[in-house]
Design a protein around this nucleic acid. Sequence first.
RNA 1: GCCAGAGUAGCUCAGGGGUAGAGCAGGGGACUCAUAAGCCCUUGGUCGGGGGUUCAAAUCCCUCCUCUGGCACCA
Length: 509
Amino acid sequence: MSKTFYITTAIDYTNAAPHIGHAYEKILADVLVRYHRLKGDSSYLLTGVDQHGQKVQQAAAKEGISPEEFVTKTTAKFIELWEKLEISYDGWAATTDPLHKTCVQKILQDLYDRGDIYKAKYRGFYSVRQEQFLTDKERGEDGNFGPEWGEVVELEEENWYFRLGNYRDWLLQFLDSHPGCVQPAFRQTELRNAAERLSGDLSISRPKSRLAWGIELPFDTSCVTYVWFDALVNYISFAGYLSDDAKFRQLWPALHVIGKDIIIPAHGIYWLAMLKAMGFADEDMPRFLVHGYVLVDGEKMSKSLGNIRDPHTFADTFGVESLRYFLMRDCVVGQDMDFTDQRLVQRYNVDLANSLGNLLNRTLNMAKRYRQGKLVRSEAAGISAFAAQTVKDYTAALDQNLVHQALEITWGLATRCNAFVEESAPWKLAKDPEKAQELDTVLYTLAESLRILAILIAPVLPRASRGILDQLAAPGDITLADTAWGGLPDGHVLGEPQVLFPRIEAAAE
RNA sequence: GCCAGAGUAGCUCAGGGGUAGAGCAGGGGACUCAUAAGCCCUUGGUCGGGGGUUCAAAUCCCUCCUCUGGCACCA
């Protein structure tokens, strides 16, 4: 069996509800994994939640409930959203899972035994109110810590450290010899620059007196591990590392879909160094697909601006598919995108309703009116060749994860078909008995093109894909190979036309 | 500050030494199968400013300005 296309997303921190940015990342990963399934590749999508840590502990305390209870409640919100958005994940990584905990502890113990983890004292300024150490970043303009930190004391604490600095040279060599490890390329350049300046080791523990909600260090039960050796490890623990060798060999290495805010240093430096320390070979290092932010009306989403968009609202107002389409079509992979209601509605009306939806509708109506929906197998060479080229270009784009480009290419076929309707004017052919064969060819060509379009949109618009195939009365179980011309048999009878994407008339302001 | 990227039509962006491009928005037209959709035509830009190289610069070089990102644990 060939290697599985193993794709993961960042696991989301469960101290608050998911927003449109979380949704974007999961949809992107979902589209890519659906594409690989369509191609017939063995595929596996892992997503999940990061449930440990201080902010969860604090948020739970604030509500007067246990961290377990709090996390269960918040996690449910993520699961509910992913189901609504049709994120077709195969594995669910929740960091409180015993499987994960066992894996983390085995890794820590092993690194400890090999001397990659050591204990050292840290002395610094500590905010009693916020229960955290402060760095120079937290200092105000005047160089002092602001009142929001409450009482600040100087404190000494013993913690465990990972010998990150030992892996700096290897990391530089690895990045230099593996262009394409990070997409887009400029992110790899940034990572390389950051790695060059890397100095010092990485604190990986917190005393339980400060943070109890985490995974206990196997060699020091007075501490829990802090974020890195917990959250990052999910990518391998849930892939069977140290628990199911066959599964792990099949899946690993992964393509990590992550946001631009966590490539440096978390994934690009810490995670790669951690894997190296665990003994992973260069060819078993993951690759990264780094996406940008979803801006709202040109601004970064933030609580203080009060412009956080709830994906549920969008899904309920405009439909899940229009949200998936808009996010995938309007965002150049790797770049930020601007999310505005107006633009979403515009894209929906222009691309989904007017172009594709109307093409389906007019085709079925003409076939019904002129031929009672019955087709004669045939081919308009210009269009079938165009369709074949479209599939080729589409594949080339998606093989490079360029979802927006694949959609643009796909819609090129829909546009070509709409023009073809005008060129061939079936309503004129229908009035001339001598043109009967020509009319049959036009109708079959349009129906067949729609069948191909339905296949191509399937990764992004699974429901609309099924909807088109249903109306064509074509089989719903499809693969990319089915885009070959002539799938609809001679004498095939099309289904009833229904409006697939009703126009959104009210300008959403 | 250092590093990277960007600044091209109202908007989103492509192009990258030889007469300025696409989609959407705006304007006009012919048609009628269709979700007043689709199709055709069209308005619109001294390609951030200034210098330079060149027969020729949006494109190469220098410089300045602006924005974004990274360096600095929030998808």
